[in-house]
Design a protein around this nucleic acid. Structure first.
Lengths: 206, 206
DNA sequence: TGAAAACTCTACCGGCGGTACAGGAGCGGG
DNA sequence: CCCGCTCCTGTACCGCCGGTAGAGTTTTCA
């Protein structure tokens, strides 16, 4: 029973790397079993088909993603009492974390699935949608806390502002992949951070 | 000769739609020829292999993309003399254009290729990189014109600011696809537009 | 030690990317 | 009018891949 979980995890590890580099359609089961050192029957013992693999892969990815955000922003919360300063620190920590990845961000599975949607069932698409909605809720919560203390310089829709965090991260990943400049993603997050600072910073009366 | 171009274009049209929905790996040549009403031999008369198809598809996509940006921002330039107002109008026009697409943005081929990179040759990856660099040059030019007139409230790296435009568009596409909310993309562009307005607007002395 | 879990082995199917090559329809120019 | 070029079609074939089926084997743990 424990052995089974271990093999399953190994398959998922290999699959995640491959899928983020080549997409689902470009990743063959044969190559996964070759790299994992398992037989085809062994693979299908763990996953009924490719769709099942995608489901497991996505759920695991989302869980891990949430965990990372939880860690970063709760750590920022511990260090800073003010909600704005805490959020700005969180973005800084996120940027640093991404900056330290040796080969840049490997890619976001949610985005991969967006660009492959038509070949997955509704369940996967719904899981993907819920992941994006969870991001929105998370960051909206932070902005609401900030707005309880600070008045934004310009009126903003909180949901749209919350979505902007995800937008910058997803867009930054695409851009840094296209440019082959891993630093672009952390840089873009810092640029966004400056915008947020500007938005809530009280106007300096000269 | 004209007949050949027409067929080629028809294949590219069908292929573009399919690839943006399912990725390259998820798009089979068989389905392309079925929808185009051509034989397999006919397909391979026009494109040596799938890589060749990808090359043609990407080049055509980038050309069209550049054309759209040219049109929008030159129109904005005609209507507004001030570089900042012109850029802000351009973003507004872009947002409206994207808002009017009945089924939302179909997806960006540059992003699709990012998430499939390992299966393409260097030439395609380099073309993709050049496309992203062209975006950077385009928007950097606009920001330089703006900065010749306005002083930003906070110091910014011009390249990073230029990249932010692409980031928001690419990220907005991913997010609106994941959320299945076509309006997210135009909304995110308007949020970004507000940030730019804020950045260059002179501080109001109360 | 025994049963369940976690596999392997073998054989097969149909679809797909790709190759090879022969042949033909339409069309424009000499 | 027919030559040659472009633009295909038809047929046959290859090997990889996703997936199925089922029988057999090893490993694990209670």
């Amino acid at each position: 029973m424990r052995k089974g979980e271990e093999t399953r995890t190994r398959i998922l590890d290999v699959a995640e790397t491959a899928v983020l580099q080549k997409g689902f359609g470009g990743t063959s089961i044969e190559e996964l079993i070759a790299e994992t050192g398992i037989t085809k029957s062994g693979f299908f013992y763990h996953f009924r088909d490719k769709n099942e693999l995608a489901k497991a892969l996505l759920n695991r990815y989302i869980e891990n993603d949430e965990r990372i955000y939880d860690e970063i922003f709760s750590r920022a919360r511990d260090l800073m009492d003010d909600p704005l300063q805490s959020f700005l620190l969180g973005l800084k920590l996120l940027s640093e974390l991404l900056s330290d990845l040796p080969n840049g961000h490997p890619g976001c599975l949610v985005a991969t699935i967006c660009y492959y949607e038509r070949l997955f069932d509704r369940e996967i698409q719904e899981t993907n949608r819920q992941a994006a909605l969870a991001w929105r809720r998370r960051f909206r919560g932070m902005f609401e806390e900030i707005m309880a203390v600070y008045t934004p310089r310009e009126p903003f829709d909180v949901d749209q502002l919350a979505d902007m965090v995800s937008t910058v991260i997803e867009g930054g990943i695409v851009l840094s992949k296209a440019l082959k400049e891993p630093q672009s993603l952390p840089e873009q997050i810092l640029v966004f951070r400056n915008f947020i600072k500007m938005l809530f910073q009280p106007v300096q009366h000269a």
